[in-house]
Design a protein around this nucleic acid. Structure first.
Lengths: 221, 221
DNA sequence: GACTGAACGTACCATTTCGTACATTGTTGA
DNA sequence: TCAACAATGTACGAAATGGTACGTTCAGTC
């Protein structure tokens, strides 16, 4: 309308179509992540995802076959991203107590900074984990998580700063529970108890309490 | 078709319509609770709720104005039911340590036995607690919950079996987090770590750990 | 028994929503 | 250069879905 008109303007702002499969795919996935995590599988709309994308609806069905497959890929991508971040954590050179403390704080903060991921997991639980069950990828990704904690814990037991008899898997469960709940139930909890849970000072307090709680739980005596 | 035919059979299995507003309303609410908690606000279908009801779809719109209002009433009813159950708990005659232990175990078991309620709260959080915010009923219902815990805690501090300086609201947060997560993330956690979390023996273990964790957290030293 | 408003059933409508048919353009290798 | 396939745009279809119009029956009142 404004500048170059029909089709004889080759190089300029003509915006000729340019095939770029990977970026289109990534774009769709990014938008889908936002939409699904915000509205759930049934609440999200393919048309709306398409609109918010550079691509068209056709492309969604071209790269992902249907809504559920798109959702599954969204879930997988989210888990992959998480594992990548977790991999950066290097605890082996730290003393057990320091390492555990670092791990708890990392988990707490990580969840707090990635509400999209938390919400996807919530949504997946609403669906009874039926999509996660289909994904071998996610299953394999999560195998190593316990190992890290297990390693720290057994070192701590050896050095006498952790008490014996705890199951690393259950320890992980406790840490996850506290960190997860902080994001998943923030809205209802804040409203019911009239407490601005998301406020930085309250987040800091909760992080401290959670860390404190875990450390008190594992210490001898 | 089979027995009495047209309209001249008054008393028998003719199944004459019988007005019963309260029971119809309750029926709708019960079915809606199951459907919403299972599939979420957007996932649940009015037609399906109607089918599973003794009543017709028309009745849903007659008693509840639209889908969202029905959902809100479902949520309110769920919270009311919970508070009724909680009210049965009488802790004042127990020693602080015993009282707190009892409270934690009660919360843990209660959540485990009421997955519908937990799922509704999850769903409500997906919606940013926007419906809960509309309900003065729920707000008022939850006011007293902290008081019970607060009472137990301050008695414990006086008697020297709890350490000072803890905020009852935050203590409640910790107990809720552990009890809630046990239900909310059961599916993903079980699948990822190949661990049948719902199995009675594992539930018992978790209940013990959670209780233990809270008690260790509050004890002096 | 007539009357009235509440309680209820049936059929239907308008829109949304997932998905696809079909045509078109870009890209790559022989 | 040109075939062949990958990538993309446009328009549309069929079913699902929230909600309503309209009529009928029940139950209490005069």
């Amino acid at each position: 309308m404004t500048a170059s008109s029909t089709k004889a303007s080759p190089p300029a702002a003509r915006r000729r179509r340019k095939n770029n499969p990977e970026s289109v795919r990534a774009d769709i996935l990014a938008v889908a992540t936002r939409e699904f995590s915000e509205k759930g599988l049934s609440g999200a709309r393919i048309d709306e995802i398409a609109e918010k994308t550079q691509a068209s609806k056709r492309m969604i069905y071209y790269y992902f076959n249907d809504k559920e497959t798109l959702y599954l890929h969204t879930l997988e991508a989210a888990y992959q991203k998480v594992r990548l971040q977790e991999a950066e954590l290097d605890l082996d050179h730290l003393a057990p107590l320091e390492a555990l403390s670092r791990l708890v704080r990392f988990t707490f903060c990580h969840h707090a900074k990635n509400p999209d991921f938390i919400r996807l997991v919530m949504i997946e639980n609403i669906h009874h984990g039926r999509f996660l069950a289909q994904s071998e990828l996610i299953q394999s990704l999560n195998a190593g998580v316990i190992d890290v904690l297990s390693n720290v814990y057994s070192r701590g037991v050896e050095e006498g700063c952790f008490r014996e008899g705890l199951d690393p898997r259950e320890l992980h469960w406790l840490i996850s529970a506290l960190s997860f709940f902080n994001v998943s139930n923030q809205h209802t909890f804040s409203r019911i108890f009239d407490w601005h849970q998301a406020a930085p000072e309250n987040q800091q307090k909760l992080e401290d309490h959670v860390t404190d709680m875990v450390l008190r739980y594992v210490r001898p005596d």
